[in-house]
Amino acid sequence: MITTIATVAAGLLGAALIWLGTNAFIAPRAAAAFGIPAPVDHPDFLRWMQPKGVREIVPGIFIFVAMVTASPAVLGWYLLTFALIPAGDAAIVLRSGGPKHVAYGVHAATAAVMLAVGLVLLLA
């Protein structure tokens, strides 16, 4: 039962990543609110939203591939490893003088959820 709940949580994480990444292409100004204090109307900044979008979409897809093809433990290891990305994002937001509520409430919280789900999948 706990493995099923953790797998569903992993799927929700994957869907959220794909949605966030897609937003970087559809509405880059809105998606730019990930915590970096920068002029979001600057064309160079908006161009950086495309690689950010890809960086979100591909891991989201990989979660679904792992859910279908791998064991829960492999999915757990992936989530544990992948949690480094939002943890790094939190550090980048803090180092760049971005809002702490975004660094902790969005990025660090995402990393914590990924760690928790990954650990459950590993230990179940």
Score class of each variant (00 low, 15 high):
M1V: 10
M1N: 11
I2Y: 12
I2C: 09
I2A: 14
T3V: 15
T3Y: 07
A9R: 03
G11K: 04
L13D: 02
L13F: 04
G14T: 07
A16S: 11
A16T: 07
I18H: 04
I18T: 05
W19N: 05
W19V: 14
L20E: 01
L20G: 03
L20N: 03
G21C: 05
N23Q: 12
N23V: 08
A24M: 15
A24D: 14
A24K: 11
P28I: 05
P28T: 08
P28L: 08
A33T: 04
I36H: 02
I36L: 14
A38W: 09
P39H: 15
H42Q: 15
F45T: 12
L46N: 06
W48V: 06
M49C: 08
Q50I: 11
V54N: 11
V58H: 14
V58Q: 15
V58T: 14
V58P: 10
V58D: 11
P59R: 12
G60F: 06
F64M: 02
V65K: 15
A66C: 13
A66H: 05
V68Q: 11
V68P: 05
V68I: 13
T69M: 12
A70N: 06
S71P: 04
S71H: 07
L75K: 08
Y78E: 08
L80H: 09
T81M: 15
T81L: 15
F82H: 14
F82V: 12
L84A: 13
L84G: 10
G88R: 04
A91M: 13
I92Y: 00
L94N: 00
G97K: 07
K100I: 06
A103F: 00
Y104V: 01
G105S: 10
V106S: 09
H107C: 03
A108D: 01
A108L: 10
A109G: 03
A111F: 00
A112H: 04
V113S: 00
V113R: 01
M114T: 09
M114W: 11
A116C: 07
V117E: 04
V120G: 00
V120K: 03
L122P: 01
A124I: 07
